[in-house]
Structure formats: C-alpha cells, structure tokens
Amino acid sequence: MSSKKDPDVSKKPRSAFSRRGFLGGVGVGGGVLGSGLLSPVAEAAPASGPAAVPITLKINGKTQNLTLEPRVTLLDALRNHLDLTGAKRVCDRGTCGACTVILNGRVVYSCTVLAIDAQGKEIQTIEGIAPAGKLHPVSAAFVQHDAQQCGYCTPGFVMAAKGYLDRHAPKSIEDVEKGLGGNLCRCGTYVGVRQAVLEASREMKGGRNA
C-alpha cells in the first residue's frame, strides 16, 4: 500500500555504494556504464539499470524485445507491455497463484519474478498453451466441470494444473489438492477444479510434457 511507512518516500536511487566494498577481489571496471548510476564494479558482470534497459523474453516460443526498468515484474511486462493479460494481478505478493506462468517447465508466480530475470528462459503463458480458437485439455475440462465462476483466478489455476499435469499423473483428489496448493479462488470453485484436473489428467495421458 502506498501509505506504508517509509522514511525514504521521496528519495531517488542514488549512487551510495562504498567504493571500498567493491575494490577487494574484483578490481574496478572502466568507465561509467551507460545506464547505471552506480560505480561500475566488475567487468565480467556489468549491472543493468536502474533506468530502462533492453530486455529480450521468449514467450510462447516467440522472441519479444522490450525496454524495461529492472524493477518491472514478469507479470507487469506481460500485462502492461505485451497485452498478454491471461495472467492476473491479484495478491501481487506470491501467494494466490493468479499470475501463474510456466518458466522452463516449472510453475512460478510471475508477480514475483523480475522480467529481466526471465531472460533466456522458456516462458509459457496461458495464451500459448492452445492454438487460436482451440482449448487446451485443461481449459476444456475446466469448462466441462464448471471449475470457474468470476474466472479471475482461472487462468492461474489452468496454468498451475497444466504445469502439474505435465509432470505428474494424479490418482486421487488428494493428489490434485497437493498439486494445486499454491492457488486461491474467492468464488469457491475448488469442487469443479478437483474434477477438472482429474479429467484433464486422463485426457493428457501420453501427451505429458508435450
């Protein structure tokens, strides 16, 4: 919340590094880096930002070139800069799962991943799991079992379920519950979600990791 107490409310970032802190061991790099406010610290590992820097993301198999501040999260990059709005911003603190995407085959909370940190990784969003006009088996099962109401948590649930089913074959409701313990719904759609994920698991048999 913007009313969080913070004595540094209006302070802008500034170069406050103790030079001494960086001299030991790594040596001092050459000139001032283009975008950095800080002293350059290591030739082999230049720092980017804090101003916007070029960022390249591979999303759903497509390369996207953006210019973003390092503080922009993957979720905000998707939603505000690429109009990929399937992932939702709900808690924005890595708790509710509405922003779930798959990164290098693993489900993550995109609200808590920096876009700059997602470079070089395979990013899969809900927009990329089925061709236009088609539904992924998980999405289809969610429709069939009415595993959604307002639907705002649903894309996150679908991605969490897909990520889970890509790696596991649940045998029971208990398995599904363990696999989806990182997502929350407010309307209370879990009864449908449990059934949908079990059904999608049957559908996806043989197609795992596809």
Binding site: G86, A87, K88, A130, L135, H136, Q148, Y152, P155, V158
Partner: peptide, 16 residues
C-alpha cells in the same frame, strides 16, 4: 467458460 479458461476473456483490469 472457454473464453475465461483460456485467458482470452478481457476483464476491465486487462484493458490496455
């Protein structure tokens, strides 16, 4: 349902 479960549904907060 399909629109929502595929992430294609546009909520107001999704508008750009």
């Amino acid at each position: 349902g399909g629109e929502k479960a595929s992430g294609r549904a546009k909520y107001t907060s999704d508008l750009n």
